[in-house]
């Protein structure tokens, strides 16, 4: 029997009883106080809760990651001109998918016998119930410019804390979610409906229910640094949790394995549904940052040369096995 990955991490919420830290159980709606053992059930009040990973790397650490990466390419002489910490929104949908479906499945035929060439492909009718635990993350705005696509596996294990937007310092920007909560749940449902069916299914009748759905916005921190080297300016984005370079440009042409990575992201449907408005939201924040005196745009080629492999788009799906 499989169960969803356990979230040992807390949510930065304290026990109303004794002030102890509340831990999330395997069943994510349940919390238990580490100290007095009091149990709590969390439910949505209609408002979306915003969370962010605890303790993002600071600007100095981000600059150190950049220096490390540049050194790999033989660049020692550079200076960071400006840096902004962006908080990029991702919808995280957790829950259980339960469904009933009926379909016809075409049986695969061996093509090598002459006899079978004349036979119509046989189909079999299937009626079944399906169920899965889901945890998937969807970008809530167009974040392609940052070299980050999905964060499901990251936030699964990260300690989170509620994000208090009004308390962020001046050099930090929060990107607005453009994809609505309803659209995120709809996308999750669609993605589940499709993944429940075999590829050859035809004449599909399906009913899918999402139960115990939890929806939250996770703000993932990404530093955007502008640096100068050899008289030109370059931009680079750095994963604000792991302190690794995500993408950027630099004064030397490098080979990048970006094509395959983007293709994989596209196949998983994570890039396709992003709307143009998403790009606008990021642009808006970007423009605001620029107006506040961020450096000039990259002067030379803008090669998306570096991508952190760990941040591939991922979905955690635990499939229930029949005995």
């Amino acid at each position: 029997m499989s169960s969803p990955p356990s979230t040992a991490a807390g949510l930065g919420i304290n026990c109303v009883q004794c002030g102890g830290v509340l831990r999330v159980k395997r069943d994510r709606a349940l919390l238990q106080c580490e100290y007095c053992r009091a149990g709590f059930l969390q439910r949505s009040d209609g408002e979306v809760d915003l969370y962010a990973p605890v303790g993002p790397v600071d600007r100095r650490q981000a600059a150190r990651a950049l220096a490390q990466q540049l050194r790999l390419h033989g660049i020692e002489d550079f200076a960071v001109i400006s840096g902004t910490l962006f908080h990029l929104p991702f919808w995280q949908v957790n829950g259980k998918v339960v469904g009933w479906q009926c379909y016809e499945e075409r049986e695969t035929l061996e093509r090598d016998t002459a006899v079978q060439e004349h036979l119509a492909p046989r189909t079999r009718s299937v009626e079944e119930t399906v169920s899965r635990d889901i945890s998937l993350s969807l970008p809530a705005c167009d974040i392609r410019g940052f070299g980050l696509v999905g964060v499901a596996s990251q936030v699964e294990t990260l300690p989170l804390k509620p994000l208090l937007v009004e308390r962020l310092p001046d050099d930090q920007r929060v990107c607005l979610p453009v994809r609505t909560a309803e659209a995120a749940v709809r996308a999750a449902r669609l993605s589940c409906s499709a993944s429940m069916l075999p590829r050859r299914a035809a004449r599909v009748r399906q009913r899918i229910q999402l139960i115990r759905t939890q929806l939250r916005l996770i703000y993932y921190p990404v530093w955007r640094l502008t640096y100068s080297s050899g008289g030109a300016h370059f931009d680079v984005t750095i994963d604000g949790v792991r302190g690794k370079v995500l993408r950027g440009s630099y004064p030397q042409r490098v080979r990048a394995g970006l094509g395959g990575w983007l293709a994989a992201a596209g196949l998983m449907g994570l890039l396709a549904p992003l709307d143009m408005a998403g790009g606008f939201a990021v642009w808006l924040v970007w423009a605001m940052a620029r107006a506040r005196g961020l450096g000039p745009p990259p002067a030379v080629s803008h090669l998306p040369g570096w991508l952190s492999d760990d941040l591939r788009p991922t979905r955690t799906v635990v499939r229930e096995m029949e005995p």
């Binding site: 109303v16 149990g39 059930l41 408002e47």
Partner: peptide, 23 residues
């Protein structure tokens, strides 16, 4: 988000937060 304390509304007896349990 709202938090519901898992305890008997009548006698205050605490309920153990067992995974999946809602009754």
């Amino acid at each position: 988000m709202i938090l519901t304390r898992l305890q008997c509304p009548h006698c205050g007896e605490p309920f153990e937060p067992v995974d999946d349990r809602r009754v």
